[in-house]
Amino acid sequence: MKFLCTSAELVDASSRGFEIDGQKLFAVRREGQVYVYENRCPHRGVGLEWHPDQFLDPSASLIQCATHGALFLIESGECVAGPCAGQSLSARVCREDSQGIWVQS
């Protein structure tokens, strides 16, 4: 497992991008739970963020691709609207402990 960040660095209803061993990832915290995905839209293979660490739609209830506006469920990564509907983001196994958030490398 690779260390991403402390728990305090990912507050609820927020997202944050990372690069671990050359792989671009992002983490989202929703209702206390952390989800980690590869930062790659299944539609065109591009990064999802609008600006650094901004992966969520304005309501912070869905992940949104900045390129074509595709919307993904935070809990599963499933695309629910846009050009890749029915496809999903690639989830990464993660855990959180007293030190912070970790992701499987």
Rank of each mutant, 00 (worst) to 15 (best):
S15A: 04
M1Y: 09
Q23N: 07
C5E: 04
M1K: 14
I20S: 05
V36I: 09
E9D: 15
G17N: 06
F72P: 09
L62F: 14
L71E: 10
Q54P: 02
G32L: 12
K24Q: 05
E96K: 03
Q54E: 02
V80K: 09
R30H: 12
R95D: 01
M1A: 15
V93K: 05
N39A: 11
F26N: 01
V11S: 09
Y37E: 07
V93I: 03
C94W: 01
K24F: 03
I101R: 01
C41L: 11
G47E: 11
Y35E: 01
W50M: 13
V36L: 09
L4V: 04
C65Q: 12
A66C: 14
L89K: 00
S15M: 00
P83M: 10
F3P: 10
T6M: 06
G17K: 06
F26V: 03
Q23E: 07
H51L: 15
A27G: 08
A8L: 10
C41T: 08
S14D: 08
L25F: 01
L48H: 04
E31F: 14
C41G: 14
L10S: 04
G45N: 08
T6Y: 04
E38S: 04
E9I: 12
W50F: 15
E78G: 05
G86C: 06
C5D: 02
V34G: 03
Q23T: 02
S7N: 15
C5G: 03
E96F: 00
R30D: 05
G17M: 02
A13F: 11
D53Q: 07
G86N: 06
L10A: 08
A8S: 15
R95M: 03
Y35I: 00
R40V: 09
A8R: 10
C5Q: 05
V11A: 11
G86Q: 06
S105D: 13
Q33S: 11
G100C: 01
A66Q: 13
R30L: 12
L4W: 02
A66K: 12
A66Y: 10
L48V: 07
Q33D: 12
L62N: 13
I20D: 10
E78F: 02
F26W: 02
V80A: 11
P42N: 13
D12G: 10
W50K: 08
R29W: 02
F18E: 00
V34E: 01
A27K: 01
I101H: 00
S90N: 03
E31D: 15
R29G: 03
F18N: 00
T6I: 10
R44L: 15
W102F: 09
L56R: 04
G17C: 05
D53G: 03
L48W: 04
D21R: 13
L56M: 06
V28P: 09
D97C: 08
G86E: 03
P83A: 12
A8C: 12
D12F: 12
S76H: 05
E78H: 07
A27P: 00
L62Q: 13
S98N: 04
M1Q: 15
